[in-house]
């Protein structure tokens, strides 16, 4: 690059020792000569670089100003600083001591989400600890135990028994989300794992990845399907269908970011546990009084 710089005479040029910056010599240069000079080149290059840099910053500043305007608008319409709309963070709590195994949540979920027969987004397990040390586990039939034709156990042989409702844990680090090859698995801003019906190809990687066995392939749509805590209800400030249908209040749903919500109060006061904590999935489904045998 220095090769193309014009070689100037020592009395008129500016690339010689002590000659730079002298007004008389700069005035004598024509514009073309000035552009070809080292000083001219540096000035133009700096201007160009600054210009390009400001162009790249332009979209970001536009977005930022738009966001700032939106926040200001919301603050103005709200009653005060507390009224500013905040993306909610939802949590779920199951009180195993309250569950009576009526199965109302199961029929409600099926009616709400159009889940085909033979599949379930939520289910209730029954653990029976026998006095000989063995544990029997079955699931509550939707039609009730009377019609299920299960063998009736002698009450004298039973040490203890209880119900454990199961549904999506809505993990913070969800393994099912991470394996999706088409980005059809969504973590919504509310922290809910959803499935994009248009992008899902039904490869069932996520079905295998979920350590809780929540996902299944829906034969009606050939897409992966899962419990989404009734996203279509909670975004309308309604409770999920299973919570709405629980006759004993065993299922509690609410906002974790609201310190006055029922679930936040209980989380602060009572000892809770999550399923398969050692896997590091950080579930947002908390269990009260969960016996350690439950997996």
């Amino acid at each position: 690059m220095f090769n193309i710089l014009p070689q100037k005479d020592s009395n008129t040029g500016c690339n010689c020792d002590g000659g730079c910056g002298s007004e008389t010599s700069a005035d004598e240069l024509t514009e073309a000569e000035f552009l070809k000079s080292r000083r001219g080149f540096l000035e133009k290059a700096t201007t160009f670089m600054l210009g390009t840099a400001s162009l790249t910053l332009l979209p970001a500043s536009l977005v930022l100003s738009k966001e700032a305007a939106g926040t200001a608008g919301k603050a103005a319409t709200g009653a005060g600083a507390a009224a500013i709309e905040q993306t909610p963070l939802y949590g779920f709590m199951v009180d195993t001591e309250r569950c009576i195994g009526a199965g109302k949540c199961l029929t409600a979920c099926r009616a709400e989400n159009d889940v085909p027969e033979g599949f379930a987004r939520t289910w209730v397990e029954r653990y029976i600890h026998l006095k000989d040390g063995t544990v029997q586990v079955d699931t509550v039939p939707e039609t009730g135990y009377a019609d299920a034709g299960l063998p009736i156990l002698d009450p004298d042989t039973i040490e203890r028994s209880y119900f454990v409702p199961k549904l999506c844990n809505q993990c913070v680090d969800a393994p099912c989300n991470q394996v999706c090859p088409t980005h059809a698995s969504i973590t919504s801003p509310e922290g809910i794992e959803l499935i994009d019906p248009e992008l899902c190809i039904g490869c069932s990687y996520c079905v295998q990845a979920c350590p809780y066995g929540i996902r299944f392939i829906n034969p009606k749509t050939n897409n992966a399907d899962k419990c989404d805590w009734c996203y279509h209800r909670i975004t309308k400030d309604e409770q999920p269908a299973c919570v709405e249908a629980c006759p004993t209040g065993a299922r509690i749903f609410g906002r974790l970011d609201d310190p006055n919500s029922e679930i936040s109060k209980r989380l602060r006061k009572l000892p809770t546990s999550v399923l398969k904590e050692h896997l590091g999935t950080h579930p947002k489904l908390y269990y009260l009084d969960l016996p350690q045998e439950v997996i």
Binding site: I186, T187, L194, D196, L199, D228, H232, R233, E238
Partner: peptide, 18 residues
């Protein structure tokens, strides 16, 4: 994040039954 943002509205638009 890396997903189709329109899917959120699509899923949320389903009517409630219960």
């Amino acid at each position: 994040g890396p997903y189709r943002a329109a899917a959120l509205e699509q899923i949320a638009a389903r009517p409630s039954v219960i």
